[in-house]
Each structure stands twice: as structure tokens, then as C-alpha cells.
Nucleic acid binder design. Structure first.
Lengths: 231, 231
DNA sequence: TGACATTGGTGACGAATTGTTACTAATTCG
DNA sequence: CGAATTAGTAACAATTCGTCACCAATGTCA
């Protein structure tokens, strides 16, 4: 009961500078990669996340699509907000507030412009402190949402093999999965349907291609799972 | 490959008006409730979410705590960002961008100021369109995160009975849970410890009081669950 | 006082799910 | 041809989950 004003909400709208900072994620060889752009000479760090201020009236995800398109030449397949930050951590454009957006882009779609490059998530160069935070949060959010939302399918082309899919899950979760269990769970979920194409990848038996085609969902109401807490 | 500028990021920082809109949630009799404030005469809707612009340098959650404190006289126990919105939907203060924040407050803590009132989530009055969206998203986010994070414990006092806890989960999830299963899962998670107090609530056997005291976590790595998709 | 209603708490069993092993299938390489 | 490699599945064991049945401790009321 402290600092309790008599007048409830005499809100004064102030003007702030706002940035949309985009973490473009895509599976590369054996690792998730982030798209960074080379900073202009004189900046404290040599690389930064692609970012811009949203245009007046432009949705934040629309801004993220525009920014990604400018750097990669392709719009991502999926967005996930990662949180807004207004702390004191330094931002390359000195924005007061940043909205971080994770953008998922399938492998092999688009190509970075000259001043942009893919970096494996595990070995990033130095970034401005706020960008570092946003990248970490993007990775955490993606890992956490991966089994509540068809994220992984957005990192693959339209058709893919089940081994491809399992590989993406392993990248996102950072651990190996068991083949038989993975396939059984996928089968039971009616999320994919087989095509009649097969892909031969050099050696080994050819693999059937599947496409993401979620069927009607049967309400899967289970008990509470206390063992999934992450904090 | 369209609209591909030759110069990558010549970001111009623009000034925008920013609001933090707070969805204060608390368990009331048999329902989750939201704290709303009476709008000034002349506004299109009679009620709105408490909101304000963040102070320069103030963190967004800090702003949410300040706003809640002004309306309820108590700071919430937990915050969860619900997303930033910059669409065209109308905001009471005509802010360009809103950051929605869900704030969880235990039952019985603080009391609303004169112009504020609790409304059951299921029967809200008319709100400005953007506020309506934020409330819906807050409810969805809370429901979705309830078994990844100890949300429910933040809606209870320091000590509580297991029936209280189950009741909060039932409010949040909107369905009944089975007593024995709920307790077994809780037992296995080492999240609570018994106190030596008991509470007698009129009729029926007295219940032991517990407190939230998460123990060392054994890595609970299970397979992928495709059946938890919500979209 | 003694049923009985009411709420708290737990053991145990069958059903369902999950982790794992081990196998078969189809292809390339030498 | 046989070894190596990748795809795909059947089947078993271990674990988890949903449920039923029951016991415990209190208040109510005839």
C-alpha cells in the first residue's frame, strides 16, 4: 500500500524510439544458424542482428518480414515474438525499446546479401549486449515451444523425409532422439501424410517424402505435468 | 527476392508512443478475475485495462509493477509478457504500440482503488479492441505456460492446501482434474514440502498446509510430444 | 450419542504410453 | 557378391496414468 495515488490513471503518452530486432534462424550443417549483418565502421561490435524501426501502422511481424526480406531475399515461414526489452543494455541504434522477433526460415531458401552471414548459434561473434540477450531468449523460446507448435516443420521444405524432421528436432532440442519412439509419436499425431515420392541420398535405402498436413485433432487432455518446469 | 535494397540497414529510428497494458489476474470465487479501471467520462468504453507509458530507463516489468501497485496497492508476484502489438486496433490512449503484460496476484492481497474492480474472465464488459486482444492473449499464454512454469503457485499465498493448488490448476485449465493423479504427479516432482500446520475449513477433515519449495531437478528428458500442439 | 455428510489422503490394479532391442528392407560401394 | 549405410517396424519391458476403492478426521443433526 505504498505510493498510492489518489487519481488512478492520468497516463501521459511519451515518445520513445522503438526497434524490431530479428533473429533469423535456419538449420545449417549440423547446427542452427543466425543471420547477422556487418556493422558500419566505427560501431563497437562488428556484427549485429538485422533491425529497423517499424513503419507507422506496420505490424511488428510485418516489419520483421520486411527486414528479413531485405537481408535474405526471402520472407520467413514463421514468426515468434521473443519479448520486448527496455532495460539499459546497449542497442546498436540506441533504441529505447526493442521487440525481439525470432523468424524461422527453411534451409536453402534465399541467400544473404553481401554484408550478411550465417553464424552457428554456438559460436557467435561479439554482439551489442541487448542483441546478445535477444538471441539467447530467441533460442530459449524456440526450444520451449518446439513441442507445442509446429515450429520444426517451418524449418523444412514442403516435403521432407522423417530423418530430416528428426534431425531438425535434434538441432532444436540439442539432444539425440530415439528413431522408433519419434516415428511412433509422429504416427499417432496425424500431422504428416506420405507423398508418393522417394528420395535417394547417395548410399542407403531411399526415404519416403512426407508433407505437413495436420488432421482433425482429438482432444488430448492429460493430467498436469509438473516435470516440465523450466524455471 | 523482391524489394531488395542495395544498402542493407540504414535504419532510421523513429519516435513512437508506447503503452504497457497490464492484465492483473487473480483467482476469485470459482473464476479467474481481471482488474479493470473505470474510464474517464467521454471514452468510448466504460472500462479499460490499467496502463501507462514506461518511464525513461524503466524496465517494462517494472512499469507493470508500478501500474499494478497504483491500482491494487500491491505488487504482483509474477509477470509474463503477452506480446507487443502495433496493429491498427484502437487503444484507449491511442498508443502506437502496446506491450501486454500478464501480472499474477494471489487471492486476498491488496484491494482495488475506488475506480477499479475485479471482473470474472468469462464476463468482461466492453473493452477497446486492442485491450480485448491483450486480455485474450494473456489468458491463452497463462493457460499454455501453466505446466512449464510454476505460475499456479504465484496465485496462492505462501502456504496452501493441496486442494487449493488443485483448484487453481482447475481454474487455469478450465477443467476438472483427478485428485489421486494430481497428487501423485506433484509428489514425484519434489516441488512442495509440507509444513506442520493444518487448516480446518469448517466441515471435513483438516488439510495439511504445504509451501512451494522446488528441490534439485532430475533432468526429465522425454521424447517429443506431438500431441501438445495448440495451433 | 451416534449415524452420516463432507473433505482430506492413499494403495493398488489395469490400461495406455514410452524406451529399447532387434530385426527386415533397399540401396551404394568395392 | 558381401560389407556398409540408411530407412522403417515389430515386439517386449518398464514406466506412467486414469480410476476405483477405501480409510481418516472433522462438523452436523436427529
Amino acid at each position: 500500500m505504498r505510493d498510492r495515488p489518489t487519481v488512478p490513471m492520468k497516463a501521459a503518452v511519451r515518445r520513445t524510439t522503438l526497434a524490431v530486432d530479428v533473429v533469423v534462424l535456419s538449420p545449417r550443417v549440423d547446427a542452427l544458424a543466425v543471420l547477422l549483418i556487418r556493422a558500419p565502421a566505427g560501431a563497437r561490435e562488428r556484427w549485429s542482428l538485422p533491425w529497423d524501426a517499424p513503419q507507422p501502422g506496420e505490424g511488428l511481424e510485418d516489419a520483421a518480414a520486411r527486414i528479413t526480406n531485405a537481408v535474405l531475399g526471402a520472407a520467413p515461414a514463421y514468426f515468434e515474438q521473443v519479448g520486448a526489452l527496455s532495460d539499459a543494455r546497449r542497442h546498436p541504434g540506441d533504441a529505447d525499446v526493442s521487440v525481439g522477433i525470432a523468424a524461422l526460415s527453411p534451409a536453402g531458401v534465399g541467400s544473404p546479401i553481401e554484408d550478411a552471414e550465417w553464424f552457428p548459434l554456438a559460436s557467435l561473434p561479439a554482439l551489442a549486449p541487448r542483441h546478445r540477450t535477444i538471441v539467447d531468449r530467441a533460442a530459449a523460446v524456440v526450444r520451449q515451444r518446439v513441442d507445442q507448435s509446429p515450429l520444426a516443420f517451418r524449418l523444412l521444405p514442403n516435403t521432407f523425409t522423417l530423418s530430416d524432421l528428426q534431425g531438425v528436432y535434434e538441432l532444436l532440442l540439442g539432444r539425440r532422439l530415439h528413431k522408433a519412439s519419434f516415428r511412433r509419436a509422429l504416427q499417432a499425431s496425424y500431422l504428416v501424410e506420405p507423398t508418393d515420392e522417394w528420395r535417394s541420398e547417395g548410399r542407403g535405402r531411399p526415404a519416403q517424402l512426407f508433407r505437413y498436413a495436420p488432421k482433425k485433432r482429438r482432444g488430448a487432455r492429460r493430467g498436469v505435468r509438473f516435470d516440465l518446469f523450466t524455471e
